[in-house]
Design a binder for these strands. Structure first.
Lengths: 140, 140
DNA sequence: ACTTGATCTAGACCTCGCTCTAGATCGTAG
DNA sequence: CTACGATCTAGAGCGAGGTCTAGATCAAGT
């Protein structure tokens, strides 16, 4: 037990695709675009080997993307992290700003949801009564 | 008081843009794409005049778009409405399916939000203590 | 009549975020 | 050794959803 850590779990691009939900194409694309924190290791033959840290970062990327963060912001965040300690305040600002946007998004969606639900109700009631006249009034 | 209804409120495209938040370009685009329920009236000179029903429909469109409904679905919905009564069941299905997607979206966003909030907390605490070592661990 | 600003049409163009292709190479199983 | 699937690079292509341009016309103020 000297240098050989029991399985440092290096994953192929295909395996990472499975665990992150990103396609292998997207993974290569993200790398090209500078969205990763560090350079991905390679085998002697040139194949990518991802560490679990790489995967963790990608999982965070997935969450941020799902919640609507543009790739440009993600790239900015990755750059901050890449440049190491000293810019945590900016990272915090970036993330917190995004969190606020997510909050706003949730609120907007909830408003939409209630408008839609109300309209669903209108149709449901209409169908229940089987009234065939006087539609269309878009407001009711 | 015979035929002259007191101001049927016909609006120009610019006014409609203001009240819906859509650009005039987008309004013309939506029309071309068949997203409107009826043909928009025109002045003798060829300028569009929107009724308040048109505006109400557009406001609904805006909500549906905001909540992620693709233009194709919106078009489908518009077609159903255009073809008049008799297909309310399908309209209901369409809207209700969308409502379910919105619910799922809200839930997903809430999960993202909590992941982000947690990470914000990590940075905030880190900054509060002013510890400069041992970052980066993407999981913590 | 003249100027100014809003609107008109048709169609080119743009950004975003991937996705796909071609053609070569790697690596493992038989 | 041979196959075969996974991966490699560089770069083209795509779908969604508008946005913008050019050049003409309309309408209102002076």
């Amino acid at each position: 037990m000297t240098t050989t850590e029991a399985a440092v779990q290096l994953l192929s691009i295909g395996e990472v695709a499975e665990r992150t939900g990103l396609s292998v194409h997207a993974l290569r694309f993200y790398e090209r675009e500078g969205l990763l924190v560090g350079p991905v290791q390679r085998t002697s033959g040139g194949r990518r080997r991802y560490t679990s840290l790489d995967v963790d970062w990608l999982l965070i990327c997935v969450r941020l993307r799902e919640s609507g963060m543009p790739l440009a912001d993600l790239k900015h965040f990755a750059e901050l992290v890449r440049h190491g300690p000293g810019n945590e305040a900016e990272r915090l600002r970036l993330l917190d700003a995004h969190r606020q946007r997510v909050d706003a998004q949730i609120q907007a969606l909830e408003e939409c949801r209630s408008v839609i639900a109300w309209k669903v109700g209108v149709y449901a009631e209409h169908l229940a009564r089987d009234e065939a006249g006087g539609l269309w009034d878009p407001t009711a």
